[in-house]
Amino acid sequence: MELVRGRAAWSVLSPGGRGLPSGRAGRKGEAVATVPGREAVRADLEQVFRAAYPRVVAVAARVLGSRDEAEDVAQEVFLTFGRSSVPAGEALGWLSVAAAHTALNHLRSGRRRAHREVAAGDGATVTPDVADAVVTLDERRRVRAALARLPRKQAVALVLRHSGVSYADVAAALDLSPGSVGTTVRRAESALRKELNRHASSD
């Protein structure tokens, strides 16, 4: 799925981004360009919101394991987007990356509200997968803890990849070469699997 062409789209996501806790993945020195005039909201906000909201929630939910909390993150991200001048054609990519970063920040900073963690299908309907990848609720919780400990780049790459973002777009987002995206994602997956195995064997 091609979200964005080229890397210009992603450069807006940087530590200087106003109100956007983007972590260290963005390129330094570039800030989100905001719409001139204090607090003006961009005209295409509703259109972009309606098109991209489910995707943005899905990205954040992968990080947080909670739909409610993911929706909070999505609101935060869209508020920032609404004051930005990110080109509409690059909105989805920008929002996806912003959702990943913001959700990871929530995960790390302990700003988590007391949300119930929801497993896909609530556990009961999880049928044995082709790859035997049955994951219990408890394991999901451990995976999220592990996600919070991963290097930021690995975590973002992992979440974006599992949200269907292409290698080229993940590379652009994180200033990686496309060739090293696989390595980054692989390391992250390996770390998560070890986390699960470690607990499984100590149980």
């Binding site: 509703e46 909201y53 939910a61 990080v63 993911a70 990848a133 992992l158 599992h162 997956e189 998560l192």
Partner: peptide
């Protein structure tokens, strides 16, 4: 492939949302 499937299953979330309400 095993690790990817495991991670996918662990991260996968049912995120049906009400866009109108969110808007």
């Amino acid at each position: 492939q095993r690790d990817a499937a495991l991670t996918g299953a662990a991260l996968d979330m049912d995120a049906d949302v009400d866009v109108d309400r969110a808007w």
